[in-house]
Design a protein around this nucleic acid. Structure first.
Lengths: 125, 125
DNA sequence: CTGTATCCAACGGGATACTG
DNA sequence: CAGTATCCCGTTGGATACAG
């Protein structure tokens, strides 16, 4: 099978499949939350603590989107004080391997990329 | 090795490595351009034609960013009319496999995700 | 503890017109 | 052919305050 046919996976229907997933995971916090939930069930405040820099607003919003997309489950325990636990669904877990592939690429190549950036900046002006 | 250690690749330094790459490839056109260039050297207008819907402005901007990051090479031929050819660098090519992993996940799970979306919308109101 | 509501600034990106 | 320059709008996301 040729490379041509492989990259059709990306280009596909004008890239609509890739665009669909990109629209969902390519925001500031989604992958980070998914990675954090990969370690097991976590409640709201713990997530807030384990993900430095995220605001309550964005944590809630991102979790709601992940829930809508069926990647994360939300369990409310009828207690006082309230306890809400988040966990990955099977579909959510299935995102981990490709996300790791991307992360692996990142740690391997980002230094080179940033060097290239700096070279262009210093040489450009 | 545990799952915990794996997902550290994503969470890593508060996810800064992943964030760095996400900031670069997670826009509307980058992956599509990279996938298109995987088929070989392409000139500006051909890219414009092969990627439906992209504006000249975004094609130029995205190509400039890819060039800065060292993922794409730009070759100007001193001719009239001018001819400019774009191609993936080795680093650019190395992005293809992880991108395919993500694309594969997308085509496999996006239907399920969109079904989940619709279920939440119809049941939610 | 687990959110929601509001306001606001920054940025991505589309449309269009112009240029060497 | 291969861009650049403007204008402009929608979305993302941060800060803050409030609520069950």
């Amino acid at each position: 099978m040729s490379e041509y046919q492989h990259t059709c996976l990306i280009r596909g229907d004008d890239g609509q499949a890739v665009r669909a997933i990109l629209d969902r995971i390519c925001n500031k916090w989604t992958l980070l939350i998914v990675a954090t939930l990969d370690r097991g069930t976590v409640r709201f405040t713990d997530l807030h603590r384990q993900i430095p820099g995220i605001s309550q607003r964005m944590l809630t919003l991102t979790l709601r989107n992940l829930e809508r997309d069926g990647l994360v489950s939300r369990t409310v325990h009828a207690e006082v004080p309230p306890r809400v636990e988040y966990a990955l669904t099977p579909v959510g877990k299935s995102l981990i391997p490709p996300a790791l592939a991307l992360a692996g690429w990142a740690v391997e190549h980002v230094p080179h990329i940033e060097a290239s950036r700096r070279a262009h900046e210093s040489g450009g002006r």
